Amino acid sequence: MEVRTIKVFTTVDNINLHTQVVDMSMTYGQQFGPTYLDGADVTKIKPHNSHEGKTFYVLPNDDTLRVEAFEYYHTTDPSFLGRYMSALNHTKKWKYPQVNGLTSIKWADNNCYLATALLTLQQIELKFNPPALQDAYYRARAGEAANFCALILAYCNKTVGELGDVRETMSYLFQHANLDSCKRVLNVVCKTCGQQQTTLKGVEAVMYMGTLSYEQFKKGVQIPCTCGKQATKYLVQQESPFVMMSAPPAQYELKHGTFTCASEYTGNYQCGHYKHITSKETLYCIDGALLTKSSEYKGPITDVFYKENSYTTTIK
């Protein structure tokens, strides 16, 4: 009895394709271990004539594949690729409408935090270190965002349907971005203890939790000093293409032309909904596939993004 075979390709990165001759009487799992086709788990399936010449994702289970996976995804987590594939199996079914010149995501599976993050990423200057993220990001900007969303979920250790947080998501993504040249110098002034300067680099240099107003941050924000008295913390120097200011959701007025974009969060910790506000020729609110415009805006804002380049204080 002759062994019926077909020729397929296996890959971990969709760049390096490895030619395989597979036995049609055995499952993919018996031949390769966990195997995925377009995100779908085909591990328990036997090869079919229609699979001839198709590319299958496999887990990096030998040295060659491990090197290829690390170079593309910059992670050695053995569960990463499987999590990416199972997320992709959902995100490829989502709709990605162009809204006001940006790629958004039609609401499904509690994905409003991903839509808000995706919209924000198209408006701030950011370059990702893992080629996987950078490639998928370019495709997302062009309207094909399924891979990018699935990668975000995998890097953030999230599953489809789980509630997510924009600030946490951005923080994970910033860790995989090139923020080497970003720098922030802060000064804390206390009447009792004097003053202390701190220099922050990388992710810490672009994120701040405690106030939404970048102007206020430049002037000074009140913080408790270690001595128990009130101290003032203010920005001395900022070198970065953008800054992200966050605070627990509270009524906040966004003035046209003073910011790049913002995240609105309605609801409580267990259950809520994100919308995205962007400042173009007027203010726009993007909620999944829905767009509304207004000249002014007041609502429960939790993150505001500002364009920056270089700032030095005039406070002496």
Rank of each mutant, 00 (worst) to 15 (best):
V3H: 15
R4Y: 13
V8Y: 06
F9N: 14
T11Y: 06
V12M: 08
D13E: 07
D13F: 05
D13N: 14
D13L: 03
D13M: 06
N16M: 08
L17S: 08
H18N: 10
H18F: 07
T19L: 13
Q20I: 11
Q20F: 08
V21T: 14
V21H: 11
V21F: 14
V22G: 08
V22H: 03
D23H: 10
M24I: 12
M24Y: 10
S25N: 14
M26W: 14
T27D: 14
Y28N: 01
Y28C: 10
G29C: 09
Q30E: 14
Q31P: 06
P34V: 15
T35F: 08
T35P: 07
Y36P: 00
Y36E: 04
D38C: 09
A40V: 14
A40R: 13
D41F: 06
V42P: 04
V42W: 14
K44V: 14
K44H: 14
K44R: 13
I45S: 14
P47S: 05
P47F: 05
H48A: 14
H51G: 05
E52T: 11
E52C: 10
G53F: 11
G53I: 07
K54N: 14
K54H: 12
K54T: 14
F56Q: 06
Y57E: 06
Y57G: 06
Y57C: 09
V58A: 06
V58E: 06
P60I: 07
N61D: 10
T64F: 09
T64H: 09
L65P: 05
L65K: 10
L65T: 14
L65M: 10
E68H: 07
E68R: 07
A69V: 08
A69L: 12
F70C: 09
F70S: 07
E71G: 07
E71K: 10
T75Y: 05
T75P: 04
D77K: 04
P78V: 09
P78N: 10
S79E: 14
F80H: 04
F80Y: 04
L81E: 06
L81T: 08
G82A: 12
R83Q: 08
M85K: 07
M85Q: 10
S86E: 15
L88H: 06
T91V: 07
T91P: 05
K92D: 05
W94T: 03
W94V: 01
K95F: 09
K95D: 11
K95C: 12
P97V: 12
Q98M: 15
Q98E: 14
V99I: 15
V99N: 08
V99C: 10
N100K: 14
N100W: 07
G101E: 06
G101R: 04
G101A: 04
I105V: 07
I105K: 05
D109R: 03
D109I: 02
N110L: 04
N111I: 01
N111T: 04
N111D: 05
C112N: 03
L114E: 02
A115E: 02
T116I: 05
T116K: 01
L118R: 04
L118T: 06
L119Q: 03
L119Y: 03
L119K: 02
T120E: 03
T120W: 00
L121Q: 03
L121T: 11
L121Y: 02
Q123M: 05
Q123K: 06
E125P: 11
L126H: 03
F128Q: 05
P131A: 05
A132G: 08
L133Y: 01
L133H: 04
Q134V: 09
Q134E: 10
D135M: 09
A136G: 08
Y138N: 14
Y138K: 15
Y138D: 14
A140C: 13
A140P: 01
A140S: 07
R141Y: 06
R141H: 08
G143F: 01
G143K: 02
A146D: 07
A146W: 07
F148H: 04
A150Y: 01
L151E: 04
L153K: 05
A154C: 07
A154V: 06
Y155R: 02
C156K: 02
C156Y: 02
C156E: 04
C156S: 09
C156D: 00
N157W: 03
K158F: 03
K158R: 06
T159G: 10
T159F: 10
V160Y: 01
G161Y: 02
L163V: 13
L163H: 09
L163Y: 15
G164D: 01
D165Y: 03
V166I: 06
V166L: 07
R167Y: 00
R167S: 04
T169C: 08
T169L: 08
T169D: 03
M170I: 09
M170N: 05
M170T: 03
S171Y: 15
S171D: 05
S171N: 14
Y172W: 10
L173F: 04
F174N: 01
F174L: 11
H176R: 11
H176F: 13
A177C: 15
D180A: 08
D180L: 06
S181C: 12
V185T: 09
L186A: 07
C190S: 01
C190L: 02
K191S: 13
T192P: 04
Q197M: 13
Q197T: 15
T198E: 13
L200K: 10
G202Y: 01
G202R: 04
V203G: 06
A205Y: 00
V206A: 00
M207T: 14
M209Y: 15
M209E: 10
G210W: 06
G210D: 00
T211R: 04
T211W: 01
L212N: 02
L212S: 02
L212I: 08
S213T: 02
S213K: 02
E215A: 09
E215P: 01
E215N: 08
E215S: 09
Q216N: 10
Q216S: 10
Q216W: 03
K219Y: 05
K219P: 00
G220Y: 02
V221D: 03
V221F: 11
I223M: 09
I223S: 12
I223W: 08
P224E: 11
C225N: 00
G228Y: 01
K229W: 09
K229T: 11
K229F: 09
Q230D: 10
A231V: 03
A231E: 00
T232N: 06
T232C: 07
T232Y: 09
K233D: 02
K233F: 08
Y234L: 07
L235H: 01
V236Y: 08
V236R: 01
V236M: 11
Q237H: 15
Q237P: 02
Q237F: 13
Q237A: 14
Q238L: 01
Q238M: 00
Q238A: 05
S240C: 05
S240R: 00
F242A: 03
V243M: 05
V243C: 05
M244F: 02
S246Y: 07
S246W: 00
S246I: 00
P248S: 10
P248D: 09
P249K: 00
P249D: 02
P249E: 00
A250S: 13
Y252I: 13
L254F: 00
K255T: 11
K255P: 07
K255Q: 12
K255V: 15
K255R: 12
G257C: 04
T258A: 10
F259Q: 01
F259L: 01
T260M: 12
T260V: 15
T260E: 10
C261V: 02
A262R: 00
E264C: 07
N268L: 14
N268R: 13
Y269M: 15
Y269H: 15
C271S: 10
C271F: 13
G272K: 00
H273P: 00
I277R: 00
I277K: 01
I277F: 00
I277L: 08
T278S: 12
K280S: 12
K280R: 14
E281C: 02
T282F: 08
T282H: 11
L283A: 00
Y284F: 11
C285M: 14
I286L: 07
G288Y: 00
A289H: 13
A289G: 11
A289C: 10
K293W: 09
S294L: 15
S295V: 15
E296C: 14
E296I: 10
E296K: 10
Y297Q: 00
K298N: 13
K298L: 13
G299Q: 01
P300M: 13
P300H: 11
P300Y: 12
I301R: 01
T302Q: 04
T302V: 11
T302F: 00
V304T: 00
F305H: 00
F305L: 07
F305W: 08
F305Y: 05
E308F: 08
E308S: 09
S310E: 11
S310H: 15
S310I: 12
S310A: 12
T313N: 15
T314P: 09
T314K: 15
K316S: 15
K316Q: 15
